[in-house]
């Protein structure tokens, strides 16, 4: 009985994937960043959208001072969501980040 059950199990198409259940984002993300940089994904997007209608989100320059805090992160993530979703909609949406360096005697 147990033998036959095992045999029948081989006739089932059970789910299988290399995509891990556990994300381990903190460990995994740096590797993905490296890949994005090495494959120049930003450059590839520009090339793919070349000649399309532009969508310009103009970055307001934060002061180049100290570590980023949560407010900075929120602002940049929201901008990134806008730019990436507009890109997905077919726009050529370049994003040029900026910094204000005149607020300080650098």
């Amino acid at each position: 009985m147990s033998d036959s059950t095992t045999d029948y199990k081989a006739t089932l198409n059970l789910p299988k994937t290399g995509f891990p259940m556990r994300a381990n984002l903190a460990q995994r993300e740096p590797g993905i960043l490296k890949e994005w940089y090495e494959k120049d994904i930003y450059g590839q997007i520009r090339e793919a959208r070349s000649g399309r209608k532009k969508y310009i989100l103009h970055d307001g320059p934060p002061y180049a001072n100290g570590d980023i805090h949560l407010g900075h992160a929120v602002n940049k993530v929201l901008k990134d969501i806008v730019v990436k979703s507009r890109t997905m909609s077919g726009f050529d949406a370049p994003y040029i980040p900026g910094w204000d360096c005149h607020g300080l005697p650098i």
Binding site: E29, P30, L33, W36, I41, Y42, I45, D59, P61, P62, A64, N65, G66, D67, I68, H72, A73, K76, V77, K79, D80, V83, K84, P94, Y95, I96, P97, G98, W99, D100, C101, H102, I106
Partner: peptide
């Protein structure tokens, strides 16, 4: 520029896409 580099590293780390190699700086 050290300040810019530090912030840039953090923004890149949170997955923000942009022309990070050629940002604009008001001091350019």
């Amino acid at each position: 520029m050290k300040q810019v580099d530090g912030q840039r590293k953090d923004f890149v780390r949170i997955g923000v896409f942009g022309d990070w190699d050629k940002p604009y700086l008001t001091m350019n």
